[in-house]
Design a protein around this nucleic acid. Structure first.
Lengths: 325, 325
DNA sequence: GCTTGATATGTAACCGGTTACACATTAAGA
DNA sequence: TCTTAATGTGTAACCGGTTACATATCAAGC
């Protein structure tokens, strides 16, 4: 790899001049600029980012902290983040924490010592590591961290409500629900919205994490203890897939006997049989927004912390009866 | 953030001594060591990786180049890679290329200028960017790049064969197949193995990419043009899910009338109705192996390029008839 | 007592960029 | 013509580590 010194020599100028043409800063004569550009091309030079980082204390790296990329909600988010970051010349460092405080801590110091410019956090921290003391630009994504930290979330309350209303409007009268992990506020909102709109129609409810296995268990529990019901809202699409599978196993016809609505709008919903009706969050959009916001923060364009609440929408596939309205 | 100078001052020694105790190199007296350790603790110091990188020309970063993390095969791989990397003090930089040469090029120079220590490539490069001229340790994962570059792959040929044999052993006599993208050699092997073992029982075949939408189209085509058949092997689980959905839509009972086998063993297979029988690749294991191999390469433990071929196995869920054997 | 090697530690160069500062030249304005 | 500001360029300090090298002390061996 060529260095700036070699370029300078080749172009017959000093390193300062080379740096100036690269950064378009200060005064450079037309002649010098051309000579430098020629030398750069000839040597196929690209500046060493580590060296630049050291002086500038900025690495063009952003840290992405998530519970587990293996959870199908996250890849799309990661993709959006990476796309936007990349368009702006940033790279992203992937960190899976499994929501374990210790892993999170380890990553946090690693990211800090490598001088990442900012953080996107999609992990909860009810257990409160010292994000605040980190003094790094950061934005929370699909998570509410605390006032003073930017957040991008979707309107879970409205989503839950929309699910209940849809079920009811489609003729369901006995509603059931499988809630998500209690410690995730954004997920809890979905349950709250659903319960509000379901009112006395709610006949049963269980709880589950977002792993399919546990969702299956929770589904069985729901059927065992609360059957019959004719509409289910699951806190996310993975849980909904479990409900669907369990319904099939019990020879319950979907959507004729039982309508099911999920939440998230991940690709999985297309792949179930029948395809899943769901409340879609604008996942990619959320990732995009969060990243753009982070880059603004990094470039100090705005320091007023904001919470961005995005609308959700109903995607009717085939686990609900489409009613003419 | 504290610097080594501050630590040195606090401990009343020179920066060289501090560096020595941190790296356990050279001679350090017991007294000095203790003083330095105390100072490090007091100042909550951790060394600046950027500075270290600059001198050592090594960043403890590895680049992970994949087509699209959104494709459900990759998150598990990414997870394995990140786990192993992290255990060894490395972080991973995520790069989605969509198999576009241009994005790949851009990433390659970005990764190089930031002095990543190595690369894991899960992307094909029939279009041949200059990996060879990169002069970086790298290992190909689930891809065959070329001789001289390490590769970790699973035995697609045996997998395809196993699928055909299973279908046949379960009583199927008219087999069909949906192949994957032609340019992926590892995927082509599956088709070859299947065709070899299916022999004259093969009655129809179409082709598809790994996106669900196109897989659905390919499935419809298969049913439209080659029905009836009683066993299908899909080149991966996403395609198998599409076949399943299309079968349900056409009121074809699985597995009674039609048996389906997928390939990969991703979580999606658990979530379909009925759950998918599939040929599982040891995905996590492959990621783990590839990363360990890369770290060995980085630490120059071994320079003899190897190709590691991992065995696959049949996971019987409910889209095949389990036969007493 | 003198030589020698092991132990211990500090100084300064180095990694490859960026930029403050000094200095020179040129053009514009009075 | 003289002053002044704009333009152009190089030198060297700096970012925060690592390490080669110089130097010093001390104990062992003769």
């Amino acid at each position: 790899m060529a260095t700036i010194k070699q370029v300078a020599k080749q172009a017959n100028v000093s390193v300062a001049t080379v740096s100036r043409v690269m950064n378009k800063s200060g005064y450079v004569s037309e002649d010098a600029r051309e000579a430098v550009e020629r030398a750069i091309a000839e040597l196929n030079y690209s500046p060493n980012r580590v060296a630049r980082s050291l002086y500038k204390k900025s690495s063009n790296l952003i840290g992405l902290i998530m519970p587990d990329i293996t959870n199908p909600f996250f890849p799309q988010l990661a993709r959006a983040i990476e796309d936007v970051a990349n368009q702006h010349g940033y790279q992203v460092v992937l960190c899976n924490t499994d929501e374990q405080l210790e892993k999170e801590q380890t990553y946090l110091v690693a990211l800090q010592t490598m001088h990442v410019d900012g953080l996107i956090i999609t992990t909860n921290h009810s257990h409160n590591p010292n994000y605040e003391t980190l003094n790094l630009p950061m934005v929370a994504l699909d998570r509410i961290v605390k006032a003073g930290i930017d957040a991008v979330i979707s309107d879970g309350y409205e989503g839950g409500k929309l699910a209940a209303e849809t079920l009811l409007a489609n003729g369901a009268t006995r509603l059931a629900h499988i809630a998500g992990p209690e410690h995730l506020k954004t997920v809890k909102r979905r349950t709250e919205g659903f319960m509000e709109a379901a009112g006395e129609h709610l006949v049963g409810m269980t709880q589950s994490t977002f792993t399919f296995k546990e969702a299956l268990t929770a589904s069985q529990e729901l059927f065992d203890h609360h059957w019959p019901f004719d509409g289910v809202f699951a806190a996310n699409d993975v849980i909904a897939a479990a409900v669907l599978q369990e319904a099939v196993r019990r020879n319950i016809r979907v959507p004729e006997e039982l309508q099911v609505i999920g939440y998230d709008g991940i690709e999985l919903g297309e792949m179930t049989s029948p395809p899943l009706t769901t409340i879609v969050q604008p996942i990619y959009e959320m990732g995009r927004l969060a990243t753009e916001r982070l880059l603004d923060l990094i470039e100090k364009k705005d320091t007023q912390a904001k919470e961005m609440l995005l609308p959700v929408s109903l995607l009717e596939r085939q686990t609900t009866k489409r009613k003419e309205r």
